[in-house]
Design a protein around this nucleic acid. Structure first.
Length: 437
DNA sequence: TCTGGGGTCCTAGGACCC
DNA sequence: TCTGGGGTCCTAGGACCC
């Protein structure tokens, strides 16, 4: 097999990743946090979702509940901040803008990570490493946060290089695997745990180790065919990528979401359907905004509720239901009604609810705003009739007991859906009386 | 009694990512 | 007392069809 790195179609990728992103963002606006142990907490200040280097050194894990950390925090003076996603999103946009100056091909992979396509840019720089250093310095200077840069012949290798740049101080925050000698790479790969590879999670690591594959080098040299038969096609692709055979393309335009989730845990347990309904309405409002932002409509919504699984002394209950819509829609009011209808079906009184959420499903893109408006309001007798039915029901049973499934024409998707879920209540006669009192 | 073969679609669940 | 919130893809198996 020819060395893919020498072929004419060799690709080159960089991965730029903000160090301890949320903490670094906070430090830009509050320099007194510099050098101190800082954690950023999730919704309701529940879990640590970002840790400064000082906190990582103390052994604090990602996702660790804050209440378990309180003693350690007191002991070491850990500063805990509630998360501020508006700030992080804004900082992220600034970084991505800087990156676009370096390459026309930028894939924003997450709030703190971007892939860059480097093909064709070689003549602009002494070396990929020189470019990486320039990226790093400019983001530090213009935005104020530290980043690491990993470079390789596939996205998986760029990710791995980034990991090395972060862990090994001698690389000075930039690691280029593509220019390294085979021996140097082997030496590195044989010291890195297989679980550090992008796409190899906890489960696969366990299985691989049981098969005698402990390091990146061993995974790279394992037989793709054997791995495929044993673990599936995803890992086969990963191994090819580790060998410098680029299988994952850069996606410079973000594909539209196929589903949109909005959910939250509650600070306090919630008992009544009215409170749940209020939350569900809020989530749906947010989800519908996201849907419209991508000019989409959805054909069904799902609503779910859950008690606190960590509280063993509580009676546990969790349930969800899919509500097909008579017409694909992005209309907030209609979607909220559908969600409340679903909620009425799954709500059971007497439980301490801790979490609820909605999922928009069957999303398709509208070709433009006009089409989605037509779909929603249109001349659709179905929609109109449905709304009237809902109003009648609301008057009769009170808020929350709303039916939408009996009105209008169903599309194919919804019909199939109905066939497969026989327990789905289609008639309002069958609606449970779901109010607590 | 014996009981085909090929195909699609859908779902639930599991794995992964940040 | 207090335990995040999003997403994607793959696979196995069942339903259904001819």
């Amino acid at each position: 097999m020819p060395d893919p790195e020498l072929s004419a179609t060799t690709r080159l990728f960089a991965l730029v990743d903000v160090n301890n992103c949320y903490v670094s963002c906070e430090r830009v606006f509050n320099p007194s946090l510099e050098g101190k142990p800082v954690v950023i907490l999730s919704n309701n200040d529940g879990c640590a979702v970002a840790r400064s280097a000082e906190v990582k050194t103390l052994g604090v894990k990602m996702g660790e509940p804050w209440f378990k950390l309180k003693d350690l925090a007191k002991q070491h003076g850990i500063i805990a901040l509630s998360s501020n996603y508006a700030l992080y999103g804004d900082m992220s946009n600034r970084i991505m803008t800087v990156l676009r100056d370096f390459s026309p091909d930028v894939e924003v992979y997450s709030i703190d990570e971007s892939f860059l396509g480097l093909n064709g840019l070689g003549s602009l720089w002494d070396s990929p490493t020189a470019m990486g250093q320039s990226i790093r310095q400019r983001i530090r200077q213009w935005v104020g946060v530290p980043v690491c840069v990993g470079i390789g012949n596939s996205k998986t290798l760029a990710k791995l290089a980034n990991h090395i740049a972060k862990k090994r101080p001698d690389f000075d925050s930039v690691c280029d695997l593509s220019s390294m000698t085979r021996q140097d790479r082997d030496a590195l790969f044989s010291t890195i745990d297989v679980g550090e590879v992008w796409g190899i999670g906890r489960r696969l690591s366990e299985h691989l180790r049981a098969s005698g594959i402990d390091t990146v080098a061993q995974l790279r040299d394992a037989s793709p065919a054997w791995l495929r038969s044993r673990f599936g096609v995803v890992i086969e692709r990963t191994v090819n990528e580790l060998n410098g055979l680029s299988c994952l393309a850069l996606e410079d335009v973000a594909p539209a979401k196929k589903q949109i989730i909005a959910s939250r845990s509650f600070g306090q347990p919630v008992l009544t359907i009215d409170e749940l309904g209020e939350s569900v309405s809020n989530y749906m409002t947010r989800a519908a905004e996201k849907l419209r932002r991508q000019n989409g409509v959805c054909e069904a919504i799902q609503v779910f509720v859950q008690t606190n699984p960590f509280k063993a002394s509580d009676r546990q209950y969790s349930n969800g239901v899919v509500v097909p819509l008579p017409n694909a829609s992005c209309d907030t009011r209609l979607l909220i009604r559908a969600a409340l209808f679903g909620l009425a079906q799954i709500y059971r009184p007497g439980y301490y609810y801790k979490k609820a959420g909605v999922i928009l499903q069957g999303i398709s893109g509208a070709s433009g705003q006009q089409q989605s408006l037509f779909t929603t309001y249109g001349d659709g007798a179905a929609s109109e009739a449905m709304m009237r039915t809902l109003d009648t029901l609301n008057q009769r049973f009170g808020k929350g007991a709303v039916s939408i499934a009996s009105a209008g024409t169903r599309n194919d998707w919804a019909m199939k859906r109905e066939r497969k879920t026989p327990d789905y209540t289609t008639s309002w006669d069958e609606l449970p009386v779901a109010r607590a009192n």
